[in-house]
Amino acid sequence: MPSALDIALWGVLPYLCIVVLILGTIWRYRYDQFGWTTRSSQLYESRLLRIGSPLFHFGILAVAGGHVIGLIIPESWTTAVGVSDHAYHIVALATGGAAGLATLCGIALLIWRRRRTGPVFMATSNNDKVMYVVLVGAIAAGLAVTLFSVFDHSISNYRETVSPWFRSLWVLHPDIQAMAAASLPFKIHAVWGLVLFAIWPFTRLVHAFTAPIHYLFRPYIVYRSRDAHGGTPGAGAPRRGWEPIGTRDAARRGTAAKTTEKRSRV
């Protein structure tokens, strides 16, 4: 019988996070198209970004690929095609470790740049700072798991604990026992990862969901009729990010008072 904590962590939390991720993304996509951007800071600083950003992004793509393979493909399949457990682990550790290290170095460089370059630091929101803590924590915990499993073979094989639990989540029958049997580093990494996905829709990370794969297939020149636009921005309320400038309409209250106040101050 799993403990209440185990049920909460491995039976309830994953579904909470998935629901927050999906609903949050839908909400953000519907209400904040204008805020849905990479918020690139390359205009301010390019030299360090050109090293750090590809290192991080290609690294994290490889890491994501590794997670998909490790979590989704059952152990029985790989043994069936003749890949021994030992060989699998050596390959996984080598590639996963390298990708994880590249990711960590990349993000370390990016954060250092963000802190040290004046304009980039000024453009960093509190939201970004929280996101960096969670993101770096998840990456560091993941890399720590990899390191531990190199030196400490007593750490259980995640393909017998974490992976079955992960797959069982999707058939709505979570295998809590399997995950409860995993070692502590894996548990920390898993929870941290879940939290990362829960905050994902509310951070700048959303840009990953609109990765422009369709660029490979679309025509170069885009013609669009005014029809396709929908909405009448000129007649609507000012949208987020577009502050009204100049003299405001008389209908909006409070402006006149503000103007005189400003004038008297000057």
Binding site: Y215, V222, Y223
Partner: peptide, 12 residues
Amino acid sequence: ASCPSGAIYKRE
């Protein structure tokens, strides 16, 4: 042609 998102368009 460079825009990955296809956000830049020419009005018909």
